[in-house]
Simulated scan of single mutants.
Amino acid sequence: MRRQAVQQDHDRIKDEYGQLCSDPFRAAELAILDYFTVPEAIALIQALAEANDAAETTGYPTYEKAVLHLAKAWRHAQALTESAEPCTVVYRALAPAAPSTSPGAELAWRRPLPHTPRERRTCR
């Protein structure tokens, strides 16, 4: 009986999120949750995946914890979409984060490549 209630909560949240994703009139709300640098969006997607996995592969206690975590992540995501303007959240998400490496270390993929002779001719 209790597992059915947990399953119903899981299904309800998946349905509400699915409706959000498919409703063209809620595009602003979805835009906020589409930026995977927004912590609430990341938490929601991870919680959805964990709950889906737990439903199929684990016992009831683990599944119940996963659905409770999903419900909490969903509430936080809903609060974010209701309280913030999309531009504010998007700009916050796209703002440069603090560097994760020491200030003198340069990441290989960010090093500028040397100019080729053709590029030098066209840049002048």
Score class of each variant (00 low, 15 high):
Ile45Phe: 14
Ala71Ser: 10
Ala84Lys: 12
Gln78Pro: 08
Leu68Arg: 05
Glu16Asn: 07
Gln4Thr: 01
Leu94Pro: 04
Arg120Lys: 05
Lys72Tyr: 04
Tyr60Trp: 00
Thr81Asn: 12
His76Tyr: 10
Ala47Phe: 02
Cys123Asp: 13
Glu50Lys: 00
Thr58Ala: 00
Glu82Gly: 11
Asp34Tyr: 05
Arg124Pro: 10
Pro117Lys: 11
Arg121Ala: 02
Trp74Ala: 04
Met1Glu: 06
Leu94Ile: 04
Thr81Gly: 10
Leu107His: 10
Arg110Val: 11
Glu64Arg: 05
Asp23Gln: 07
Val38Thr: 13
Glu119Asn: 01
Thr62Ser: 05
Glu64Met: 08
Arg75Ile: 06
His69Met: 06
Arg26Leu: 14
Lys14Phe: 09
Phe25Ile: 05
Ala43Lys: 11
Pro24Val: 14
Ala73His: 09
Cys21Tyr: 14
Pro96Gln: 14
Arg2Met: 08
Thr62Asp: 05
Arg120Glu: 02
Ala43Thr: 08
Thr116Asp: 02
Pro112Gln: 00
Ala84Tyr: 12
Leu70Tyr: 08
His115Phe: 03
Gln8Met: 15
Met1His: 12
Gln7Pro: 07
Tyr91Cys: 14
Leu44Tyr: 04
Asp53Glu: 15
Cys21Phe: 10
Ala79Lys: 13
Asp15Gln: 04
Asp34Thr: 01
Leu20Cys: 01
Ile42Phe: 05
Glu64Tyr: 08
Asp53Lys: 13
Arg110Gly: 02
His76Leu: 08
Arg92Thr: 13
Tyr63Phe: 15
Tyr17Met: 02
Asp34Gly: 05
Tyr35Thr: 14
Leu44His: 00
Glu40His: 07
Ile13Phe: 03
Ala98Pro: 00
His76Arg: 09
Glu106Pro: 11
Gln19Glu: 14
Ala41Cys: 11
Thr57Gly: 01
Pro86Gln: 10
Trp74Asp: 11
Leu80Met: 07
Arg110Thr: 10
Ala28Met: 13
Gly104Gln: 11
Arg124Asp: 01
Pro39Glu: 13
Arg121Asn: 05
Ala28Glu: 15
Leu113Cys: 11
Leu70Gly: 08
Ala41Leu: 10
Arg111Tyr: 09
